[in-house]
Simulated scan of single mutants.
Amino acid sequence: MEGSSMKMSPVEKEKELFHVVHKVPPGDGPYVRAKHAQLVEKDPAAAIVLFWKAINAGDRVESALKDMAVIMKQLDRTEEAIEAIKSFRGLCPKQAQESLDNVLVDLYKKCGEVDEEIKLLKQKLRLIYQGEVFNGKPTKTARSRGKKFQVSIKQETSRILGNLGWAYMRKTNYLAAEVVYRKAQKIYPDASKACNLGLCLMKQARHEEARSVLEQILQGKLPGAGDIKSRNRAEDLWRELDSWQPPPLSSNPPGLGLEDDDFADGLERLINEWAPNRSRRLPIFEEISEFRDELAC
Rank of each mutant, 00 (worst) to 15 (best):
residue 1 M to V: 02
residue 7 K to D: 08
residue 11 V to C: 09
residue 14 E to I: 06
residue 14 E to K: 12
residue 14 E to A: 12
residue 21 V to H: 07
residue 26 P to N: 12
residue 28 D to Y: 13
residue 28 D to C: 12
residue 33 R to H: 11
residue 34 A to P: 13
residue 38 Q to S: 15
residue 39 L to M: 15
residue 39 L to Y: 11
residue 40 V to R: 11
residue 42 K to W: 10
residue 49 V to C: 12
residue 52 W to K: 14
residue 56 N to M: 14
residue 56 N to R: 11
residue 57 A to E: 10
residue 58 G to A: 05
residue 64 A to C: 09
residue 65 L to T: 06
residue 65 L to Q: 05
residue 74 Q to A: 14
residue 74 Q to H: 07
residue 76 D to F: 07
residue 78 T to L: 06
residue 81 A to L: 03
residue 85 I to E: 10
residue 86 K to D: 15
residue 89 R to D: 12
residue 89 R to F: 02
residue 92 C to L: 13
residue 92 C to W: 13
residue 92 C to S: 04
residue 95 Q to M: 14
residue 97 Q to A: 09
residue 97 Q to V: 08
residue 98 E to D: 08
residue 101 D to I: 07
residue 104 L to I: 13
residue 105 V to S: 09
residue 106 D to Q: 09
residue 112 G to T: 10
residue 112 G to I: 01
residue 114 V to Q: 07
residue 114 V to L: 15
residue 115 D to G: 08
residue 118 I to N: 02
residue 119 K to V: 04
residue 120 L to D: 13
residue 121 L to N: 06
residue 126 R to D: 02
residue 129 Y to T: 05
residue 131 G to D: 01
residue 131 G to P: 07
residue 131 G to C: 08
residue 132 E to Q: 13
residue 133 V to I: 14
residue 134 F to Q: 07
residue 135 N to H: 08
residue 137 K to P: 01
residue 137 K to A: 11
residue 144 S to P: 07
residue 144 S to E: 11
residue 146 G to V: 13
residue 147 K to H: 09
residue 153 I to H: 02
residue 153 I to P: 00
residue 154 K to R: 11
residue 157 T to I: 06
residue 157 T to A: 04
residue 158 S to E: 03
residue 160 I to D: 04
residue 162 G to M: 13
residue 164 L to G: 03
residue 166 W to I: 07
residue 166 W to R: 01
residue 170 R to N: 08
residue 170 R to Q: 12
residue 173 N to K: 12
residue 174 Y to A: 08
residue 175 L to N: 02
residue 175 L to W: 03
residue 176 A to N: 04
residue 181 Y to K: 03
residue 183 K to G: 00
residue 184 A to V: 01
residue 185 Q to L: 06
residue 187 I to F: 00
residue 188 Y to D: 02
residue 198 G to M: 04
residue 205 A to R: 15
residue 205 A to M: 11
residue 206 R to Y: 01
residue 206 R to L: 11
residue 207 H to T: 15
residue 208 E to L: 15
residue 209 E to R: 05
residue 212 S to P: 06
residue 212 S to C: 13
residue 214 L to W: 08
residue 217 I to P: 05
residue 219 Q to E: 15
residue 223 P to F: 00
residue 230 S to A: 12
residue 230 S to L: 00
residue 230 S to D: 09
residue 230 S to F: 00
residue 231 R to H: 07
residue 231 R to E: 11
residue 235 E to R: 14
residue 236 D to T: 10
residue 240 E to V: 05
residue 240 E to R: 10
residue 240 E to G: 11
residue 241 L to T: 11
residue 243 S to R: 09
residue 243 S to W: 02
residue 245 Q to D: 12
residue 250 S to H: 06
residue 252 N to M: 04
residue 254 P to N: 06
residue 256 L to Y: 04
residue 256 L to P: 05
residue 259 E to N: 04
residue 259 E to G: 01
residue 260 D to Y: 08
residue 260 D to T: 08
residue 261 D to A: 05
residue 263 F to N: 06
residue 270 L to N: 03
residue 276 P to L: 09
residue 277 N to C: 06
residue 282 L to C: 02
residue 282 L to M: 04
residue 283 P to L: 01
residue 284 I to T: 00
residue 286 E to Y: 02
residue 287 E to G: 03
residue 288 I to G: 02
residue 289 S to A: 01
residue 289 S to W: 07
residue 291 F to D: 09
residue 293 D to A: 10
residue 296 A to K: 15
residue 296 A to E: 15
